[in-house]
């Protein structure tokens, strides 16, 4: 069984937000508008967080693109009262919009703030949207799904052609867009895959690893030195 995961190289990430916008276009995530944005309600499944290094007079800044980390031991799914968010066998944390009761318990429980709420009806179906992804209604929680619909499509295609999914056939929109190739997506269960190799790099670390959430999005720290 595949275990989908992602490596994000912070040394390469330029904070450009291509991943952010790619995700919005791919997953029909709306812009919420100026008023709502001012109230802190921007929905950004992939969000570039910035960390300033306070020891050096904020001289250093770091960009941390943060999708849902697809924790293997996700605190968010534990608390859902209605099975509206759960871990599927390939390690993707599912989010079921038409079951969610909107209690936001999962949001409160996610240590990475990866879940977003539809405070209003932010959008209707309209041209330009991706038909593979449903438009969310008000009152439900949404988050990065590792572009799960792409897996389904890839799988159907492979199935129709009577073969297994090939490496690289299932890629996420954010990884595909990233101009710095800072995002590498693939199967962590396959030790030969690029993600697996990078995940074992000495630069690899996990966000809030001490919480034991076992994220499947793994970061690489900045490198040192020049030639």
């Amino acid at each position: 069984m595949a275990l989908w995961g992602m490596v994000i190289d912070l040394d390469r990430c330029t904070g450009c937000q291509a991943c952010v916008m790619a995700c919005k276009a791919e997953n029909n995530v709306p812009a919420v508008g100026q008023k709502e944005a001012e109230r802190g309600r921007i929905i950004s499944w992939m969000q570039v967080l910035t960390e300033t290094d306070e020891e050096h007079h904020s001289e250093k800044m770091r960009f941390i693109p943060r999708p849902c980390l697809q924790c293997d031991d996700p605190p968010c799914t534990k608390v859902c009262p209605v099975y509206a968010t759960y871990r599927n066998p390939e390690g993707i944390i599912a989010q079921i919009y038409n079951r969610c009761i909107g209690c936001r318990f999962c949001m409160a429980a996610c240590p990475y703030n990866a879940k977003y709420f539809n405070w209003y009806t932010y959008q209707k179906e309209k041209p330009g949207q991706n038909p593979d992804v449903s438009v969310r209604e008000k009152g439900v929680v949404e988050k990065c799904t590792f572009c799960h619909h792409r897996l389904q499509k890839a799988r159907e295609r492979a199935h129709a052609e009577k073969r297994e999914i090939e490496p690289g056939e299932y890629n996420t929109a954010c990884a595909q867009a990233c101009p710095a190739q800072a995002i590498i997506f693939g199967d962590l269960a396959d030790p030969g895959s690029e993600v697996s190799k990078l995940a074992r790099s000495p630069r690899a670390f996990k966000l809030q690893e001490e919480l034991g959430t076992k994220p499947k999005v793994i970061y690489l720290t900045e490198g040192e030195g020049g030639g």
Partner: peptide
Amino acid sequence: EVTGIAGNPYHPINRGSVCPKAFGGLQILY
């Protein structure tokens, strides 16, 4: 009907990747 934008994986300039502005194309169009 346009439903998505991605980089052209074979294009020598960008090899499939794009910057955030590329996706704005959807919003210009519509």
